[in-house]
Amino acid sequence: MSDINIVTLIGVALLLIGFYGALSRPNIVKMIVGFAIADTGVNMIIVAVGYLPGRTAPILDSAADAAGAAARMVDPIPQALVLTAIVIGLAVTALMLSFAVRMRRSGGGMSIDTYGEQKW
């Protein structure tokens, strides 16, 4: 049990569930929901890689002075990366959804199977 990192386990599970949803559901919106869940899973994995047990957030205050900071704080780099990744995730989700709305508007159905024959 002790050599299993529980947060990355959750992250990998979410990633797999998200991919399963994106690959197996015929409904376009469901596929996008799957991608959003996979996105959350990836972010959890990245944050968990930088986590060190028993350490605090990388923010200085009166309790944590600059001198001993490096010995008491978690790795800040993955957090900075994930901060960026979450915002990009929203933008990509919105772009996928607007493609879905556009496909819907041009007369297609909600299911991806109805688009098999179209060439555009």
Binding site: V7, V74, V87, S98
Partner: peptide
Amino acid sequence: ALGAPDVAMTEAAIGSALTTMVFLYSL
């Protein structure tokens, strides 16, 4: 819980609020 309050704020605001709103608008 993992000592990432910045990421927690962003995820709560973007991941759960704005993404859901974008989904609902497109639905």
